[in-house]
Amino acid sequence: MRSLSLRARAESAPPKRRLFLTPYFFVLPAALVFAVFMLYPLFEAFRMSLFDWKITPGTTSLFVGFENYAHAFRDEVFWMALRNTALYTLVTVPGQMILAMLVALALDAVPRGKVLFRTLFYLPVVTSWVVVSLLFVYLFESSEAGLVNYFLMHIVHIISEPIPWLREPGPAMVAIMTLGIWKGVGWSAVIFLAALQGISAELHEAAMIDGANGWQRFWRITVPMLRPTLVFVLVLLVIGGFNVFIPVYLMTGGNPLHRTETILTYMYNQAFNFLEFGYGAALSYILAAIIFVISFVQIKFLRQPVEV
């Protein structure tokens, strides 16, 4: 519906003005920065990925073609990092969306306190990744003194021994993903809430008169109406999931045994711990290609081109 109206608008709008120099005056400052610090590095990264790139003074970089890419596919740590990155995305994206939807539905339904709750849920979103990552290291302390262990042992009695969260790969991934969900729920919830408030009450009332229950109304009215919003949030969250870096870097550093490594932590490590700039650049491009393909597929298949 929206896209249709947008397209119609664009066609009926008066033709845009053609001027000779004025546009460039407006374009130039931003475009210059964008070109030098965004587009040029983008090309440069690709060029570097084709070299055994040397950065230290007095050394020569060797052209190696696609060897860095081939190396990645033979590198078991790369596959581990890819698997972890995918796992993080597969868990945190649905986790955030489902919880955010529940929060948004609840907030939409309650008569008062919306702003207060929205503020509280949004707090983690505005807090720096560095701070919350360190905070979670503290909460997920391996001993009984860690808040999470203490809660699980002595309040809800689910475990009898403290879990060494950040020492073991599995629990460490759980801690990292918990942080990802906790920090992100508020963002999706605020967007969902705004979208929910845009659905007219009459639709729901009409459906209720027809005898539809809450579940049916959710799937027949809310979800279709929210579809563009849902796809938008999904696409952005998946991109965000593949870009996970700071929590892993600060919570486990990819350890133990690279088992919590993600693509970007591995890339950073290769580049700045071993000065393998060419390999790091190749890893970046592989990640970018993955993200591009997944986003493309999502948009192409999940979005219905035209609705009423």
């Binding site: 374009v27 964008f34 610090f37 587009l39 983008l42 990264a45 890339m267 990640l287």
Partner: peptide, 23 residues
Amino acid sequence: LFYAILLTLMLPNLMLIIPEFVL
């Protein structure tokens, strides 16, 4: 220009950190 902007919206800023460093 517009498509380039949209493209970079999708890409992780971090992937540019290596060339950015050199630049």
